[in-house]
């Protein structure tokens, strides 16, 4: 299983290199934005897979609360971490694009604001985990907090339809020229494979760390025996 996940990850890295090459050097410049539009080939896949990982995190949180099995908490940590990384990258890439096309690094537009809130909420769940030492309580609290944080995710996606926004509508094959779809799709699959690999890897580490954690009762018994 470990080798399969690593293979998926390496395939993702290879695809990301190919997709980025096509996006940077093969796809034509956009009619109005020129070469800066090439940021889209990494920005849009980051957004898609970031939102997908947030959805994975919510599903793992529900699965943990439903079953109480540690394996779901392990996967939850992995999905939360990659959601925060992709969320942070999404904001930075968007700021670079915004500086060129809108003339500002940041504006309190509804898409940008909900994306920032999503990043802060999931980062907050990770911070909450680090403050709670007791494993059962940590898993339960972070699952509940993840489900609450997830409320913002549909808002991020649909806000450009529901409210007036500077940000363009979600990209789809109907709204993007065919020469631009190929690098978008390659990089989307690349990000997906890398995300799956990193979630599986982080989950494995969490499982190992849990094995090293000793329940308080065991420490007390050992201490009592030594005493």
């Amino acid at each position: 299983m470990r080798n399969v996940a690593t293979g998926i990850g390496l395939l993702g890295i290879l695809l990301l290199l190919v997709g980025s090459y096509v996006g940077l050097f093969v796809a034509p410049p956009e009619r109005h934005m020129g070469d800066v539009q090439r940021i889209m080939y990494v920005h849009v896949p980051t957004a898609w897979i970031g939102l997908l990982c947030s959805t994975f995190a919510m599903i793992f949180a529900v699965a943990y609360l439903w079953t109480g099995r540690n394996r779901w908490d392990d996967r939850l940590v992995g999905a939360l971490e990659i959601s925060v990384i992709l969320g942070g990258l999404l904001l930075v890439q968007g700021m670079l694009w915004g500086r060129v096309t809108w003339g500002v690094w940041w504006t309190w537009d509804v898409r940008l604001t909900t994306s920032l809130i999503m990043f802060l909420l999931f980062a907050g769940v990770l911070a909450l985990r680090s403050f709670v030492e007791e494993p059962l309580r940590r898993a339960t609290w972070s699952s509940v907090a993840t489900i609450i944080a997830y409320v913002d995710v549909p808002l991020v996606y649909f806000c450009v339809r529901w409210f007036r926004s500077l940000h363009q509508m979600p990209s789809s094959p109907e709204t993007v020229h065919s020469s631009m779809i190929i690098p978008l799709r390659i990089n989307a699959f690349a990000m997906l494979f890398i995300a799956i690999w990193l979630i599986a890897w982080r989950a494995r580490i969490e499982s190992k760390s849990r094995g090293a954690e000793r329940p308080p009762e065991r420490i007390e018994i050992k201490g009592a025996l030594n005493g």
Partner: peptide, 8 residues
């Protein structure tokens, strides 16, 4: 828009 390469 021209000159966007450094941002890309």
């Amino acid at each position: 828009i021209i000159g966007g390469w450094p941002y890309v």
